[in-house]
Design a protein around this nucleic acid. Sequence first.
DNA 1: CTGAAAGCGCTAACAT
DNA 2: ATGTTAGCGCTTTCAG
Lengths: 346, 346
Amino acid sequence: MMDTPEPHPRHPATMAEVARAARVSRATVSRVLSGAVEVSPETRSRVLEAVDQLGYVPSIGAQQLAAGRSQSIGLLIRDSRNPVYGLLQSQVQKWADEFGLHVVTAMPTFYRGAHQETTALRQLIGMRVGGLLIASGVVRTEDLQQFLPTVPVVSVGRPEEHPGVYGVSYDERDNATQIAHAVYDHGHRRIAVLVPRSDRSLAENIRGEVAASVLEELGCDVTRIQLRLLGVGGEGNAELLKLIRADAVTAAVFPADRRMLHFVDHARRVGVHVPRDVSVIGCDGVLEGLSYMELASLRIPVELVSRRAVEVIASMLESPGEVEIMHESYTGTLELANSLVKREAG
Amino acid sequence: MMDTPEPHPRHPATMAEVARAARVSRATVSRVLSGAVEVSPETRSRVLEAVDQLGYVPSIGAQQLAAGRSQSIGLLIRDSRNPVYGLLQSQVQKWADEFGLHVVTAMPTFYRGAHQETTALRQLIGMRVGGLLIASGVVRTEDLQQFLPTVPVVSVGRPEEHPGVYGVSYDERDNATQIAHAVYDHGHRRIAVLVPRSDRSLAENIRGEVAASVLEELGCDVTRIQLRLLGVGGEGNAELLKLIRADAVTAAVFPADRRMLHFVDHARRVGVHVPRDVSVIGCDGVLEGLSYMELASLRIPVELVSRRAVEVIASMLESPGEVEIMHESYTGTLELANSLVKREAG
DNA sequence: CTGAAAGCGCTAACAT
DNA sequence: ATGTTAGCGCTTTCAG
């Protein structure tokens, strides 16, 4: 068994080369590899030997082209620095394995050019993936629309309202309501709520808006802090600190854990302590170390949502056009911690 | 401008359809889209109109097949739940954008079957990506070897020793040395070091082994705690707790922040507090909230490593075979915090 | 500046 | 059980 590879194959081995080496036709190689058709054991082993002798790996592009279908699903993900997406990606991979599907992941460009935001989408479409999982709020459903007749699409982990797109997501209204009640039940009546713009993050916008409304309905004095930027770079922290120092609020509601973390870290450096000076609660529950930091949050069911999304796309792949479009959403579970403390109402 | 899409395109538009709609040949469509050749303005605009009329997106597979090359690079990543990989993926994307490269990411299967661990690699090879970034320790360099003549490969963020594979990684020996000296300089002399098996994580193994050796050379009493499992599931915590309770160690060195976090969280629940009862230091520095948790660590230069890796692969794409194989490694920076406290030597 | 035609590597009838 | 052949959608000579 030579273990020196060919000096300069230069080009990846082709099926024709394998066929030649095994003294069979290309079709036979294909049959052996696909395993769909009976092949005589000797031929079979000759082929397999040639395959790994030559280090042959079939060209997926050519396969897709010839067969007209694809075993892979595309995952469009926003920014993997966010642990929520990291977990999602990992879980999608896990369930796709289970269903025998290959996942290819693409991420939108960072540049904010005109149509640039859809290049990742076009990349996946160009690959002719069998199905598409959209987990990025950056891509608008209207951009998806034109591809809908062509490829099954599932919107995952983001609020989906388009009746033509299957959605598997978190119940953000319920999330916000749970959070609002938790804060209220702890006796807080003057509350700051951070609200990102909906074009930045629809999910976070809903969380903020709904939490604020619910609290208002409960008779609280709510201060909305509008956020305009995309990142979590501490926007709104200064405004919030001012409110706290003026004793205008006793609690703050953050639409995402990372924002909450950013705030508490900054606040402590300038002498404002949680929960001594203010109670806080976030949303996601995915960030590691939350319990160690004693930060209250709401854990969204990423695992469940990922699983359902893969299940749905798998069934769409199996019976195209047969799957009824629905919008599923799943509720999270409150994870209380010492950052949200009881307080005499008032 | 009709904005109702065709009722049932069913199949993605082809270049031939675009050509027909624009009353030109397929070659002309190709030329317009590639932009490489001059085309008369009128023809050009007719083609472009047809393109977005039909929502045409070129098949990357067919392009690759016909042209024999590919604009995309494959990124093989271990597990995106780990924030280090999340950040890496994000940074690779960012720099690839800069170089006009498309990134497709694949992740190894979770199953631990025989050859299963290389399916993601085969997936990427099968796509005939123009270059490969390997950021997963799960794939061994020997598995890569056979593809080396065929596609440029850069090992990124993992210790690479094979002389045939370009490596851009962290200087784990330096990391470990910095950590060891930090612990020593804080007066600790009886120290526990957690050491994962090298087949689980080579990087973490080196960190542990080297830190332990350096501390021993400095005359410390070092207890190695061997870790055998892949995850961060608190392995070794019990053993470490016992040492602490017996007052056999005053400090613990963790080869990764997540392990440290897992420990401190668990420890606190059972009444062992950091840094009161034991000092700790981790490695990575990527986990969010480290500073808030006051956990000492060493920040590895993920951004720099990602950038270099993309630069290298880009230059390999440009002049194949011309790039001299090297192993670059970059040092991290210590980020001290209150979890590592001064102590009377002894 | 544009069209015709020859493949790229593979699958899927269709033969044998 | 195996070989032959016709494309799949695209790029790229080569002619015009």
